Computed example of a mutant assay.
Amino acid sequence: MSEERSAFDWETRFAAEDTPWERPGLHPAMLAWVEAGELEPGARVIIPGCGRSPELGFLAARGLEVTGADLSATALAFQRQAVETAGHGAALLEGDVLAHRPDTPYDRVYEQTFLCAIPPRLRVDYERALCDWLRPGGHLLALFMQKDVAGGPPYGCALPAMRELFPAQRWIWPDDDSFIAWPHPSLTGKPELAGILVRR
């Protein structure tokens, strides 16, 4: 997603430390997925809209092949310093991640609410990119923001809308009751529904 495709100035917000969407520490859904064996050493994973999230360095330290992407040069400079200081490696992509097409498909996408950050008009482009990024059988580790009020970011990602966006022809869905709601501590407790979709 390029700056031209987003009305939200992410770089200015990161540079000004005006980032209320950032969580303190690792997302509990990430820890649950690690415990469930979803993120094993050697797996290739991409984090679109990685920002300054600690998950990138955490997965690199676990031995995963991690790619982080963001529009913000400030956020990526933070990630670069963090992984280098820790003695790990990660690929970092600055710019329009929706145009990214890897030479080798990924095993996992950690969807840490990137979907709720992009304008809804770009969601179809994102779903197509996800299909291109993931190998058949690859997993989308999704966090769908639940929000009743219009506008954003964050934009609400209600499950009925997500089922239309990620159709059964291309994605295997879990049962709706398997989604776990994780309230966001900084965004008035808005829940993020965590679930895993499998690319057919």
Rank of each mutant, 00 (worst) to 15 (best):
G189K: 01
P136K: 02
R52D: 08
R170W: 02
G25P: 00
I180E: 08
M30W: 04
F144V: 03
P160A: 04
P28T: 05
V45C: 10
R23M: 14
G152R: 07
T188N: 12
T74S: 06
P136A: 04
R80F: 12
S178G: 05
Q79C: 09
F166L: 08
M1T: 05
P167I: 06
G42E: 08
E55Q: 07
E11H: 04
E192I: 01
A15I: 11
G57P: 02
E65V: 15
P174H: 12
F166E: 02
L140G: 00
D96L: 04
L141V: 08
P54Y: 04
L159Y: 07
G156E: 05
P160H: 02
T113H: 01
R101V: 15
D175H: 10
E4I: 13
R170Q: 14
G37A: 05
E35F: 05
M162P: 06
A60H: 04
I118C: 04
M145Y: 13
P167L: 03
L26A: 13
T12I: 09
M1F: 13
R13W: 13
V83L: 05
L187V: 12
R108F: 09
D125Q: 10
C116V: 13
P154D: 09
Y110N: 03
I180S: 03
V83Y: 06
H100E: 12
G95Y: 03
Y155N: 10
R199C: 11
L141Y: 07
D175I: 05
E3R: 06
W173R: 00
M30Q: 00
H184N: 01
C157L: 10
R108V: 12
W171C: 05
E84K: 11
L115A: 13
E94D: 06
A158T: 08
E3Y: 03
D125S: 08
Y110D: 05
F14N: 03
L93N: 01
A150Q: 07
A82R: 11
I180V: 15
T85H: 00
W21L: 13
K147W: 11
L115E: 03
E84M: 10
E65K: 10
T113G: 02
P154W: 13
G151H: 08
D103S: 13
P102Y: 09
Y155I: 14
R5A: 15
T188Q: 12
A60C: 09
R13G: 12
P174T: 14
A90M: 06
P174F: 09
D18A: 15
P120Q: 08
L141T: 04
L39H: 11
R23V: 14
A36Y: 12
P174R: 06
R5T: 14
L140Q: 01
P54I: 05
P154C: 08
P183V: 13
D176E: 15
A61V: 03
A61H: 04
A194F: 08
W133V: 14
C131Q: 12
G95I: 02
A86K: 00
A161I: 03
Y110E: 06
T74G: 01
K190E: 15
G137N: 09
